[in-house]
Amino acid sequence: MIRVTGLSHRIGASTILHDLDLTLPRGKLVALIGPNGAGKSTLLRLIARLEPLQQGRIQIDGLDLATTPSARLALAMAVMGQQARIASRLRVGELVGFGRWPHHHGRPRAADHQAVDQALDAFGLTPLRHRFLDEISGGQAQRAHLAMTFAQGTDWLLLDEPLNNLDMAHARALMARLADLVRGSGRSVVTVIHEVNYAAAWADHVVAMKDGRIVAEGAPATVLTEPVLSALYDTPIEVARHDGRPLVLHHHRHDDLDAPCPGPATETRLALH
């Protein structure tokens, strides 16, 4: 499991994370949710050692982040950041192949080739493996990056807003893949998710964050409730149930459609106090 103790983080004068203590369970699909600026991405990036640790301690399956060499950590967790467009002209198969680099450091063995084949297959990329990344669609490229992370073969996968720029169908397919991954191969996935309903539909464990603190955590049914979410987003939110899972309804003002009410700008201003 991932154990975070006493974690604080500052950027300039502003504190992004306030003395967090958190344990993320193994073998689950964990979703980090919360409003903009809650510190979800910062937390994920700190766990993934993409940002230097300022204060506090993070352990991944007993490996202390501060003392374990980066190359060793690459065998325990794989990371997919919010990718910028890469300038390299690589084929899909080559990109996924780099996921095996922590295992072979330049001399791929049969097991590595096999892992790459599996990853390509798992993400439906086998027909595209010889295509250049700049010649396929954005959704396909996203899948290629994810396959690379998968090919790394680590117990932990950390994903920073993987649904960004994906349309409804692709987003859903991605979440289904992640859920299969967790159920089928016993991997553990931690992902930052912006749209609550993807967490509601697919996650096993939800961590809700606000203003650099953890507001609630636990099974979706216990976290994704009307009082928690309304307080989390400072917006009245209804939660219904669909197929036995929570379904968050927030797309219009249900209660007072006709009544005059404060506009959204006032609401957020109130929330700041």
């Binding site: 993934a48 050692r49 993409l50 060499p69 980066s70 190359a71 060793r72 950590l73 690459a74 065998l75 794989a78 990371v79 997919m80 950041g81 990718q83 910028a84 890469i86 300038a87 390299s88 690589l90 990109l95 780099f98 996921g99 680099w101 922590p102 450091h105 330049g106 992370t149 790394q152």
Partner: peptide, 20 residues
Amino acid sequence: ADRFAILSLGDEVATGLGLS
């Protein structure tokens, strides 16, 4: 060569693969 290829994928990818 592999190290340079990984580096050109970005600092984050490089760190994720355990490369300094």
